[in-house]
Design a protein around this nucleic acid. Structure first.
Length: 651
DNA sequence: GAGTTTGAAACT
DNA sequence: CAGTTTCAAACTC
């Protein structure tokens, strides 16, 4: 519901406005060849993903009692001692900000932020959400107070103190503040930015945490915030790319004992490179990040304000409650990360396995040079990738998937994990993919991609444990597919004919292609070609099949298994295959044909064109497809049942 | 594995 | 934009 209207929300608009990339424009292509896809289709996917995220999170929050999550709450001795826990993250941010203002004037991140500040600020200010933000003064005071409290703690203390001094005693700092006083008062945007400069990772975690918190608290009343929340996630995804080394200290300082951040860091560490920050500067995504961050910040501030109020009113008990909720949400977010991390750990084993099996594959993600491109992962997940996603529901498949795209493995696993919701992932994927900034480090890409794609894929494809996909399984032996590569003879693997190219992957050994140009050594050419193709067709690298989030259901619900109402983005044009063979993109993607299809004699078992919204396999039988599939339904049903069974077992 | 079919992509 | 050609995957034998 909220999801559906998300695009109409001011937040969404804001985000869109912030994005340097015009949706569905060729620009985004530049990003990463690999990440490609999600960008362009961003218009198509962004909202759904976000929505899904929100929804899932929302549902989760509402459905699950804090108690359940309680055990997993990241309690950290000292930090938790502070009853103000909820606001703590904010405070930490503030601290960080203060530090930046006074202590670290030269940090690269900060510079970046400063640069972008002007642009973003204006936009951010205009946001309706900003209105929510309090005067800021109280916050600051509180921050100071909290900071002081924290000052008892070793490292943080000094920083905090310095911050306090700067803030209250230091004229220079005051001036700095004054310059942007209005902005600050409005929404502490500056903080966001500065914070970002301080530590992207921590910021993200905190932002997410807080945003989540706010979401939880404001669940019923403020859905926009949720939307914003997605930004945080996306931001996180972006952040994941940031180098930890540079920020480690800050992270420690800022996040203190926050396991979440740590987890996140851990998760991201392997991915990060020192140069990435620099890249970040160069890339357009920074604004995006900022936007996200800002939004998050706003929320954070809001939530903090609320918390402060509550604190004053109710004292610690209420705070405790808040903390709990925050943790809950945090837990979720963090959990995702954690799990991701864990998954990556264990999964790292996964990756490792996959890697071991096909280590080279990782290196074959095509990096993007372009700064402007927005998301791209979608593109990365080309048709065959989609097919893979659709096909795979098994862990086995997952492994294979990893091989194929390097990223899918993770996603799959995540999806499988009942606890972990992919919800957040969609955005993550979306943004991160968009952001794939790194021009070279293919390995880095690989990692990122590995994570993001997985997410995206998972969100779109896997979340819906649709029988359809299962059904595909037999046909798409993921493993075989994963290992299967292109066989291009004339296209030089620089056209969409080439599956590798279309999927944003470099060709690798398994490929049987001739005169292949789709290799890292020809990166320039690859990117250029890709750009051209996207110019011609912005959606060229977008997933052939998209699933509307409408069908997505609450997380952790049976509904979760609702088959995605998927539709071919463009529509097939089958004449002879009756849309019953993989020639048909719809069929291959495991989705029914839609009105947009020009197929003749459509018999798509996933849904026939002449029977709009028909979802043969829909277990629920409703959603988008409520039409009775009749024969197809019958046969499909049996399979779907079997598939569901499998899923259940696998889950 | 070779040959055919198919429909998307690319081209005109 | 429509028609044609090219292409490589999917499929068949």
């Amino acid at each position: 519901m909220m999801l559906v209207n998300m695009q109409d929300s001011p937040v969404f608009n804001y985000i869109s406005s912030l994005s340097p990339i015009e949706q569905i424009k060729s620009i985004r292509n530049d990003r990463s060849f690999n990440s490609v896809n999600f960008t362009s289709p961003s218009s198509l996917f962004a909202s759904p993903k976000i929505g899904y995220l929100r929804e899932s999170r929302f549902s989760l929050s509402s459905n699950q009692s804090p108690d359940i999550l309680k055990p997993e709450l990241p309690l950290h001795g000292k930090e938790n001692k502070i009853s103000k826990g909820n606001s703590e993250a904010v405070q930490l941010f503030d601290d960080c900000t203060g530090k930046l203002d006074c202590v670290t004037p030269g940090s690269s991140a900060r510079e970046v932020i400063s640069k972008l500040l002007d642009e973003t600020l204006e936009l951010a200010i205009e946001l309706p959400i900003t209105v929510k933000y309090d005067g800021g003064t109280p916050v600051r005071n509180k921050v100071s107070r909290d900071v002081k409290e924290k000052s008892r703690e070793p490292e943080t203390d000094r920083a905090s103190l310095s911050f306090v001094q700067c803030n209250e005693d230091n004229p220079g700092a005051a001036d700095y503040f004054e310059n942007k006083t209005n902005l600050r008062k409005i929404c502490r945007i500056e903080q966001s930015e500065e914070v970002a400069g301080c530590d992207w990772v921590s910021l993200v975690s905190d932002a997410v945490l807080n945003s989540n918190l706010s979401v939880v608290e404001n669940n019923s009343e403020d859905q926009d915030e949720k939307t914003v929340d997605t930004g945080a996630i996306s931001f996180i995804s972006t952040v994941l790319q940031l180098p930890q080394d540079n920020t480690k200290d800050l992270v420690n300082m800022v996040t203190g004992s926050r396991s979440c951040s740590c987890k996140q860091s851990e998760m991201t560490e392997p991915l990060t490179q020192p140069e990435e920050i620099e890249n970040l500067k160069d890339t357009d995504r920074t604004p995006d990040i900022l936007s996200s961050t800002l939004l998050d910040k706003l929320i954070v501030s809001d939530s903090r304000e609320k918390m402060d109020n509550e604190e004053e009113k109710c004292g610690q008990s209420s705070c405790k409650h808040n903390i709990l909720r925050r943790c809950l949400d945090f837990e979720m977010v963090g959990a995702r990360k954690k799990k991701v991390a864990c998954e990556s750990n264990c999964t790292s084993s996964n990756l490792s396995q996959a890697d071991c099996k096909d280590a080279s594959i990782k290196k074959h993600f095509v990096p993007s040079k372009s700064k402007s491109s927005s998301s791209s992962m979608v593109a990365g997940a080309g048709l065959h990738l989609n097919a893979l996603a659709a096909a795979s529901k098994d862990g086995k498949l997952v492994k294979c998937k990893t091989t194929a795209s390097g990223s899918k493995v993770i996603s799959m696993r995540i999806c499988e994990s009942p606890c972990l919701s992919l919800t957040s992932c969609p955005n993550l994927l979306n943004k991160s993919e968009e952001r794939d900034p790194v021009p070279c480090g293919t390995e880095v890409y690989v990692v990122e991609n590995a994570m993001q794609p997985s997410v995206s894929v998972g969100s779109e494809e896997f979340n819906h444990s649709s029988p359809k996909r299962k059904r595909y399984k037999p046909e798409h032996n993921v493993e075989s597919m994963a290992c299967k590569r292109c066989n291009c003879k004339r296209s030089k693997c620089l056209k969409l004919y080439c599956e590798c190219f279309a999927a944003g992957l470099y060709c690798i050994e398994p490929c049987s292609c001739l005169d292949c140009f789709n290799k890292p050594i020809h990166e320039d050419k690859v990117l250029e070609t890709r750009r051209q193709i996207e110019l011609r067709n912005p959606l060229a690298f977008a997933p052939k099949v998209i699933r509307s989030t409408d069908s997505t259901v609450e997380l952790g619900d049976e509904a979760n298994k609702t088959p995605a109402s998927a539709r071919h983005k463009k529509g097939c044009n089958c004449k002879r295959s009756s849309c019953l063979k993989k020639y048909c993109e719809c069929f291959q993607g495991g989705v029914g044909c839609s009105i947009s299809c020009r197929c003749e004699g459509c018999k798509n078992s996933f849904g026939r064109k002449d029977v709009p919204n028909f979802a043969v396999f829909s277990p629920l039988g409703a959603e988008e497809g409520e039409y009775d599939g009749e024969e197809s339904e019958t046969c499909a049903k049996s399979e779907s049942d079997a598939n569901i069974h499998d899923n259940t077992e696998g889950g």
